[in-house]
Amino acid sequence: MTTPNPRRVDKPGLLIALALLVLAGLIWQDMSSLQLSSVYGLGPKAMPMVVSIGLAILAVGNAVSAFRGELPERESLRWTPILLIIGGLALLIAFVEFNVGFIPATAVLFACTSAAFGRRAFIIDLVIGLVAGLVIYLLFAKLLTLSLPMGPLERLIGA
């Protein structure tokens, strides 16, 4: 792999190394708070130790390649689509949490993702999402009697 500028330190690469180190520390700290041990053989602390030490070593490894600038090159990226999709997911989660219901939650996610991929027909997509959500809901809640999140709309169908 050829890198155009091998001397340049890769900052995001260093951040990754740091994140791995934090994760290693977190696992170590959690491990040392375990109170019970196995009576015979290996206790519950062995595996976290191995993972934590491994992650710490890998953090160093990643840091070294970041310093050498060995990470592959990255293209520019746009944040709007990412935020749209994550926003759609967040709305879905909120809808489930606050009992708005499964069907509207599905519709919103559908429309947001579709917008993230460049469509400009939010309302139409919302309607498509609603219909899709409705079909899925009927299929699962009615046919397989799965308990999906209920909102006003779902109760209306259920009644």
Binding site: L89, V96, T106, F110, A111, A116, G133, I136, S147, L148
Partner: peptide, 22 residues
Amino acid sequence: PQPWLYAGILVFATMGTIAAKP
């Protein structure tokens, strides 16, 4: 069309999760 394909994939992905562990 790509927007609908990926929107559908996400709906699919979340629906499976919701149904299995709401």
